[in-house]
Design a protein around this nucleic acid. Structure first.
Length: 570
RNA sequence: CGGGGCGUAGCGCAGUCUGGUAGCGCACCACACUGGGGGUGUGGUGGUCGUAGGUUCAAAUCCUGCCGUCCCGACCA
């Protein structure tokens, strides 16, 4: 391809409404253009990248034995009513009517359609397991689209659905997909982690998210510094401290703490470490009117997801309001504590391990010091309530936890029978008995990968594409070719020969000054470039530079094709 | 849905307070110079100032409604 024939839509200035670096660079490099909020046109350069990602995903899915299908974006309401999601899904489901006023939606996902297909086509256990996938545009009417292509209303997704006669078969395919995803992200050249995820409202027994590590990621993930363990931070278990709880050493004492509300104020006021205090939060119980007190170490944060999963606690988690608390406990938010409290208490593992701690006295503006479990109040029910923090021991027993941010680019689920049950997808087993099929689903955000790759691979000059997804492998920059016959003929000759050698080449034959060409090719992130200029050419040399290299090097004209072949296809 | 910001040329912005002929930089076109890191000069193209209404002799500017868009939050996956 020649730049003179290519829509190279680069921009010098950063668009004002782009917040994250990938969004800025995608606009500046001319990969995408916004049509409306959350809706983007892919320009030729961007589409090349998208297609390369898609190709790798397709190849690896095919290799796993999955079969590609293509389902409609427009889906009839009846299917969604059958699964119950027409009501459940909410306004994110973009609904439309056709000319006969029949209800349809634009598919945010395709469980209903695929389940309908399989219940009609698959009748026998002999046809299972089967794994069907597509790479297709999804529509979600996001409340707030943001970060460009990262969270848009229309996006390209690979979604696969597997069907099984039993759980064992599902788990087999689930493991296969786990490996396939790892292969895909490895081939794409991205730094990623499979993390244990919350199964959320979908339920089911197993779920992993695949995250590309990047500072701008929307999710926090915790992983061990010396094993494979990684989990969404909501899911990471906080282990109980090891060893015995220290014996009480201090006397229980009451202190007046006027105006002290937060743990920070308490620690300053009494000159104690927040880690030797406890905080007490009050939430709604799972019966109508009850309350439950949750006790955590002062320096720890409550993990709402863990809490609401516990028996006895309302889900979703509901914090009690201060008036209710005051009536039930005798004091407001800043002065609560486990000693003598009138409502059921659940204590976090770490807080349960404290001795001589400081806590609220359940009397306004009063705290207790030197409090101890079993002596001053019974040790209540102990559970894992807190958010893990960096340095905590890894739940798998190996190493310590680090916390980084990640961008979710893949998600695999063991769905179970949620959809097959509702939509009556059954097959006959070997005994001629009807069995409801068990399902798995496996998604990859293809367009989001493009943004995630940029978040992870860029510098102040622009994008640095991993070789696997670059729009072109090599840029040829002939300098002053409109004036120099030697440069022009050498460039044309090399352009021919490199194409014949099977390389995907972009030749910048525009009548632009060198600085413009350098800047553009760096901005759009072509991994390799050669410069053809009178200076080096006089010595019979071509200049080569990798996008990440600091300096260029000279390669004799006669060796250049072979040299490039080695550089690009090691 | 709540709070906040912004809508003036393709992009980035000034002008709005204090009403009086629509402006700058980049980009684009032409020509000349220049030719190894977004170069220089000259001349040009391009805007019903988001939209509807109101006030006024006169509105980008003042008033009201609406729309769009971005950020924060809530919500959701």
């Amino acid at each position: 391809m020649r730049t003179s024939n290519f829509l190279l839509a680069t921009q010098k200035e950063t668009p004002a409404d782009a917040e994250v670096i990938s969004h800025q660079l995608m606009l500046r490099a001319g990969l995408i253009r916004k049509l409306a909020s959350g809706l983007y046109t892919w320009l030729p350069l961007g589409l090349r990248v998208l297609r390369r990602v898609e190709t790798i995903v397709r190849e690896e899915m095919d290799r796993s034995g999955a079969q590609e299908v293509s389902m409609p974006v427009v889906q009839p309401a009846e299917l969604w009513q059958e699964s119950g999601r027409w009501e459940q899904y909410g306004p994110e489901l973009l609904r439309i009517q056709d000319r006969h006023q029949r209800d349809f939606c634009l598919g945010p996902t395709h469980e209903e359609v695929i389940t309908d297909l399989v219940r009609n086509e698959v009748k026998s256990y002999k046809q299972l397991p089967i794994n069907l996938y597509q790479i297709q545009t999804k529509v979600r009417d996001e409340i707030r689209p943001r970060f460009g292509i990262m969270r848009s209303r229309e996006f390209l997704m690979k979604d696969a659905y597997s069907f099984h006669i039993d759980q064992a078969s599902l788990e087999e395919t689930y493991e296969l997909m786990h490996r396939t995803y790892s292969n895909i992200f490895t081939r794409l050249g991205l730094e990623f982690r499979p993390v244990i995820a919350d199964t959320g409202s979908i339920g089911g027994s197993g779920s992993h998210e695949f995250h590309v590590l990047a500072n701008s990621g929307e999710d926090a993930i915790a992983f061990s510094d010396s094993s494979d363990y990684a989990a969404n931070i909501e899911m990471a278990e906080a282990l109980a401290p090891s060893g015995e709880r220290p014996a009480p050493a201090a006397e229980l004492a009451e202190v007046a703490t006027p105006g002290v509300k937060s743990i920070e104020e308490l620690a300053n006021f009494l000159g104690v470490n927040p880690a030797s205090t406890v905080k007490t939060l009050v939430v709604a119980a799972d019966n109508d009117s009850g309350l439950v007190a949750l006790v955590l170490r002062g320096d720890h944060q409550l993990n709402a997801i863990k809490a609401e999963k516990l028996e006895g606690i309302a889900s979703p988690l509901q914090m009690a309001d201060e008036e209710t608390v005051r009536r039930a406990c005798g004091a407001g938010f800043g002065s609560l504590g486990p000693v003598g409290i009138a409502i059921p208490v659940i204590v976090d593992r770490a807080a349960a391990h404290l001795a001589d701690f400081t806590c609220g006295a359940n009397r306004e503006e009063t705290h207790l010091t030197g409090a101890n479990w079993d002596r001053d109040c019974p040790l209540p029910r102990v559970e894992d309530l807190r958010e893990v923090i960096e340095g905590d021991p890894s739940p798998d027993g190996t190493g310590r936890l680090q916390i980084k941010r990640g961008i979710e680019v893949g998600h695999i689920f063991q769905l179970g029978t949620k959809y097959s049950e509702a939509m009556e997808a059954r097959v006959l087993d070997e005994n001629g008995k009807n069995i409801t099929v068990t399902m798995g689903c496996y998604g990859i955000g293809v367009s989001r990968i493009v943004a995630a790759a940029i978040e992870q691979n860029h510098d102040d000059r622009g994008i640095i594409w991993p070789a696997s997804m670059a729009p072109f492998e090599l840029a040829i920059l002939p300098l002053n070719m409109q004036k120099s016959e030697a440069v022009a003929s050498c460039a044309e000759d090399l352009y021919q020969r490199l194409q014949e050698a099977g390389l995907d080449v972009l030749m910048d034959d525009r009548n632009e000054r060198p600085g413009v060409k350098f800047a553009d090719m760096e901005l759009i992130g072509i991994p390799h470039r050669i410069v053809i200029g009178d200076r080096a050419l006089a010595e019979g040399n071509i200049e080569y530079k990798g996008r990440r290299d600091d300096d260029s090097r000279l390669v004799p004209m006669g060796d250049i094709v072979e040299f490039l072949r080695e550089q690009l296809r090691p």
